[in-house]
Structure formats: C-alpha cells, structure tokens
Amino acid sequence: MNAFKRKKNWYSSDRVMPKVLLGFSLISILTTFAIVFILLKESITFFSSVSVYDFFTGLKWEPLFAEPKFGVVPLILGTVMITFFSSIVALPVGLGSAIYLSEYAPDRVRTIVKPILEILAGIPTIVYGFFALTFVTPILQKIIPSTEVFNALSASIVVGIMIIPMISSLSEDAMMAVPRALRNGAYAVGSTKLEVAIKVVVPAALSGIIASFVLGLSRAVGETMIVALAAGLQPRISFNPLESIETLTAYIVQVSAGDIQYGSVEYLSIYAVGITLFAITLGMNLLANYISSKFREDYGG
C-alpha cells in the first residue's frame, strides 16, 4: 500500500475544477462563434436579394423607401467621419496626458489623476450621448449658428473624450515600460526633460502607443449610443461635420428599435451592416496586435 496513493474520488478538486473552468472559458468562445455564425447566416440571406457589389459601392442608403436602396457607403463614411474627428480630439490629448503622467507627474498627482481617468472610462456611453446632445451641441451652435441639432462634430468630440482614457492609459503603460536607464543615457548628454520624453521615451514606446491609437479608434468605430443620440440618423454623403449623418452602428439601433417587419430585407440589412462593422473593428484589433508584437522593443542590454 503506497502511503502517497491518490484517492480516487471523482470529485477530487484537481480533476473536476479544470473541466469546470474550461467550460467557463468555452462560453465566451462559443458566444463569439455564435455571433459570427448568425451574422454570416443572416447576411447571406440579405445578399441573396441585394448584390454584394451594390451593397459596398452604392451611394444611397434608403432602406425604407418604396424602392429601397442599400448602398452602405454613406454609413461607412459617417463612421469614418466620427472616427476621424474623434481621433483629432483623442490622439493628442491622450498622448499628451500619457506623457505628462509617465514623465512629469509626481507620484501624488499620478495616484489622483489615474483613478479619475478610469472613472471617465466607466461612464455609460448613453450618458456621454446626452452630454453631447444637451451640452456640447448648444455650445457648438453658439459658436457656429449653422450647426444642426444632430451633427457629427458634437458626437465626434464626445466620442473622442470617451476614448482618451484608453489611449492615455495604454500609452502610459508603454512609456512606463521604457527602462530608466534609457532616460539616464539621454539626461547624461544634456537632454532636457522634454527632449527625453519626445526623442527617447515616445520613440521607444512607439509600438505600444500606436497600438493604443488603433484600439482607441476601433472603439470609436464601434461606438453606438453617442452617435445614435447626437449625430443623427441621416445617411448621407457629407463632409460637413456640422450636418447630421448616420453611422453603421446608429443604423442598427434605428432598425432594432423601430417596427420593421421581422425577416424583411430591411430587417436583414442590419446583419450586413453588422458584419461590415465587425470586419472593420476586427481588422483594426488585429492591426493593433500586429503592430505591438512586430515592433516590440526588447530594450536590449
């Protein structure tokens, strides 16, 4: 009789728990597959009545007209416009605050500012949405009276504010990972603090910073409530951010909340729009992964 013999209970924790935990991790994986499957299945049905070519090249999105037109370009342009203007807000501010936090802020300031940034990241987007509509838009209208009530700019600014914490916190992590020794090397030849930050730390952390930009922008692409509330529901090809537009996400909200007949072409169009959106954000996330692994610096030494 071996004194160390294992008890053969079926419920021995090291036998059962791995399987339970495996089950938990499978839930999210299976959910992802289910989502992709549904998106594909319904899109295929949609594309049996609207050609893929017309969908991706059509310049008019008029699903509810007597003669419906399903050209997704105006929606994509709406999304691109929101992403573009929000990045103008978020990239400089996010990077700037990351530089401040990692290179300048005394520990005491950092311990106060970081949690506040995280609170910003925890605000529900619907709250951001009516902040855009009821606070930012009136200010824009005072500055530029021709601004429409629903406009892309107001939504872009607020989407930008929403993704600042993400960009700032990921960029800061990348910059904090730059070894102290590199900074010392730069100081030792007579660099100012700003030169150390801009010419040594930021380039050394560039892969992480760019990855944070791409992830932030992919959040902007997928952002829904802010644009649905503040940017309007006007699918149009416009390069004027003061006009109302419609994004891919806002269209899905519009249809899901409306009373369109289940199974109709208009109804199915949200799956085609959804899979387009999914492809864009998936592509951006893969790009961010690729950038951060491909250009990762190991800092030698």
């Binding site: 590199l182 010392n184 030849v189 100012t192 050394a204 610096e297």
Partner: peptide, 28 residues
C-alpha cells in the same frame, strides 16, 4: 552634462540605429 559626460554600468543604447545613437546628443 554636455561638458561632463557619463557612461553607465549597463550598456544603455537607445532603440535606434547606431548612427542615431551617436548623433542624438549633437542633434539636441
């Protein structure tokens, strides 16, 4: 520090080219 240079215990080149490492100081 421009007049009094320093070399550290661990080699600490910047993640840049050899040229840019040496040219860093003169450039700034």
């Amino acid at each position: 520090r421009k007049r009094v240079g320093m070399v550290f215990q661990q080699p600490n080149p910047f993640p840049k080219s050899i040229y840019d490492n040496v040219a860093y100081g003169p450039r700034i």
